[in-house]
Amino acid sequence: MAEIRDIKLPMTEEDVKSLKLGEMITVSGLLFTGRSRLHIRAIEDNIYPPIDYEKINCFFHVGPVMRQEEDGEWKVVSCEPTSSIRFERYGADVVRKFKLRTLIGKTTMGPATAQALKEVGGIYLSKIGLSGNALKDQVKKVHDVYFLDELGKTECTWIYEVDHFGPFFVAMDSEGNNYFEDLAKEAESKMPEIEKDLGIPAGYDYTEVNAK
């Protein structure tokens, strides 16, 4: 397999354009974390971490396990990307609001976020396997934390400095293409044959008991 490229954060438009669907990369630099609560509050309540989103422009979808050492320093115990598709209701608005070029998570996102990424020149990176232990070692420093008291350790926003963080793969490129949607179409096309092998009659439907 070809050597895995490391891309510096924040990504430039050129970086984003050079990334191919399915390509594996690592990233180095600053990122911020968040999950459902950040998405909902940023859009519904206009409450979000007061950071410079031009500099800290990579949104890592994660609820890490964090431990506070005796000297007060925070350490990452494990960080496993969480399922981004859950955030699709607010995903596009968040990408536009902060002009995010890099999203990192698990699974994928939907067509609305794909459109927003296309507009701002952004990509979506999805995780490879379960790798929370390797990823935690690639977090070199925990710079800051926002809304810890309000949201707790899992939903609050952490600012990480990461080095050769990953690998992740490009699951959505800046042209609106989605690795998983292509795969889903392939799986769907196999269903008639699979159903036939299982002895399910063609055109089979469940008994309908409700008014149409």
Partner: peptide, 22 residues
Amino acid sequence: KHLEVSLQNADMSEKGNGLVCA
């Protein structure tokens, strides 16, 4: 790669008392 990484991750958690998944 998905499987290799996941099996390595399990090895790491076993050795270092980390978590199999966060």
